[in-house]
Nucleic acid binder design. Structure first.
Lengths: 354, 354
DNA sequence: CTGAAAGCGCTTACAG
DNA sequence: CTGAAAGCGCTTACAG
């Protein structure tokens, strides 16, 4: 049916093994033979059969990408991780087998046991992720995006959510804010092991305590119209709060309408900082300063390390890594000093600080 | 290394061929042998090697998914098509090889020539799509999402954009609107062959002409902050327009802020109809009525037909299909009668129609 | 109802 | 520098 290396060999007038070596470069080939083989390949339009090659070499040049789409989680954000992984893989000569089924454990076994992939990237890794035990004893390398409790045997990449929480709080503290609100992902996300929610929140609470200011923390509602309603209630509940921190894309997307509806503006009435990617902000016209979540970079890092392991370019005994991306605060001008009418009661008259 | 069918055969005490037949069911096997084989499979945790099977059968049970990410196009919307394809494929027993590289033609040749896939789904198909000639002579079946000029040899699935354009216009005409604005995708999208933009726009213009009303058509700006600015200019340019039709997700996402900033409301001041998925509307808190773009359904349809062809379940000589999904208008209450102050000059006093 | 053998299209020791 | 042959792990005619 299709062209095989036998056809190439025949046309070039050499043996199949010589044709193979001429293409792989795994042994020295006379210039004349090499050009004859290459010409034959061109002429016939030869492409090696992937299955046959995989069978012979136990290498597929395919990476499994396990994207977990959980209810209430934010699907559009996932696209950026997938693109980072996919594009990087291609640059390095790999293709991507994408799995989106709910049962990630099943999918992982299938891909690795059947030898369809050389390694896997797990997205959206939970604190106590079901997929990890399977990954650990499948014998293939794996890179994670997201930090699990047990990082043994895998390479891990994630945003430094602790630092993100601190950066968000400190930025507003430095501007003079004394009462903040932090809205995180929906509680379901936390229950399913989305540890990044706690990591950011705990660090934020600690930073607030250290600065001696108040912070109110909430889990965002899941879906509309609950989000808009909840947002209103939260604002009403804390009339003296002047800073809004959002670790929740869906709430960030809903915030502009809510603010406008109440004739509020950032940074005039509220200073706002989100945690999402700039790409996301641009796409949805979100005008808020934000901590860059770097999905593209995380995808790239995960794939690069995975490919190093697959190709044995890690030093012998090289330990696995846990690498955090430093949060970058992208200033879009949505933060400033708190409104004078709402300055802390400790200085009601204005400039009477020592 | 891994467990092979030879191991299964040995443990079950049968030949490899018998083990294979017991698993495939392609010939009658005595009950006792079958259970012994199945037990061995279980005990050993056997999974067939995908490469070996592909080599022997010329079938991979993998579908290639070519997603084209063009600059200025709306990446988040793509996720829903991908999910529709991926989930449906899995239900039918197929895995997805996802390709996102810019050069789709290259990727297509690679996947088909190397025998990595049994067929392909092309997303985001342009009027004169580069990938089609390659698809046509690769010998593998292909399903498209998006309507090209030449549909020969492929199965095509798309939203009925003509009908969508008519539905949008007629809905507002019936409510009494006499001057509309239609904002389509950025001009780049059209230039690259996004024929759906013309299909919707031409049908809308025709429907408006037929109803004897005015319609102003624009291509949306690409990216922020141009989108918001352009939106403002367009509204200013047509003070008598009362209906807004959006064939552009990014503009739809930016519209709530723009309206609020101008103290405008839908449907009080403008009746608004978008063209996007309900999933998209929910995710981004978009309060507008919209023509459902049905990405999930289109993905499903494309895969189902592709699998029928792959598995030879099409009748001999069964022609290729071009199937349009009927646009469904999802009413979110953003349309109504035009503001009384802006009724057409033909009836300034009110109820003086015959 | 079951087994021995050929073959899918590669790669890579082994021999020269 | 090159070729003949074995082997990767399956499936499936061919024989019994």
């Amino acid at each position: 049916m299709a062209i095989t290396i036998g056809d190439v060999a025949r046309v070039a007038g050499v043996s199949r093994s010589t044709a193979s070596y001429a293409l792989s470069g795994k042994r020295t080939i006379s210039e004349s033979v090499r050009t004859r083989v290459l010409r034959a390949v061109d002429e016939l339009g030869y492409t090696p059969n992937a299955g046959a090659r995989a069978l012979a070499t136990s290498q597929t040049r395919v990476i499994g990408l396990l994207a977990q789409f959980l209810p209430d989680e934010f699907a559009p954000a996932m696209m950026q991780y997938i693109l980072g992984v996919s594009n990087t893989a291609r640059e390095l000569g790999y293709d991507i087998l994408l799995v989106t089924e709910a049962d990630g454990t099943n999918a992982l076994s299938r891909l690795t046991d059947s030898g369809m992939v050389d390694g896997v990237v797990l997205l959206n890794v939970a604190e106590d992720d079901d997929r990890l035990p399977i990954l650990r004893d499948c014998g293939k390398p794996g890179s994670l995006v997201g930090l699990p409790a047990d990082v043994d045997g895998v390479d891990v990449f994630d945003l430094d959510f602790e630092e993100a929480g601190r950066v968000m709080v400190e930025h507003l503290v430095n501007l003079g804010h004394r009462e903040l609100i932090l809205i995180s992902q929906p509680e379901h996300v936390v229950e399913r092991g989305g540890a990044y929610v706690w990591r950011l929140q705990n660090a934020a609470v600690e930073a607030a305590a250290f600065a001696g200011i108040e912070i109110h923390t909430y889990f965002g509602a899941a879906g509309q119209p609950q989000i808009a309603q909840q947002l209103g209630e939260i604002l009403d509940a804390h009339p003296m709060a002047t800073g809004l921190l959002l670790n929740n894309e869906a709430v960030a997307a809903a915030l502009p309408s809510t603010l406008h509806a109440r004739h509020l503006e950032a940074p005039r009435d509220y200073s706002v900082i989100g945690r999402y990617s700039s790409e996301f902000a641009r796409t949805f016209s979100l005008p808020f300063s934000h901590v860059e979540s770097a999905p593209d970079l995380l995808g790239r890092m995960a794939v690069r390390q995975l490919v190093r392991r697959i190709e044995g370019r890690t030093r012998p005994g090289e330990p696995h890594v846990v690498r955090f991306v430093a949060p970058d605060l992208v200033d879009l001008g949505s933060t400033g000093a708190p409104p004078p009418s709402l300055v802390a009661p400790s200085s009601p008259e204005g400039l009477d600080t020592p």
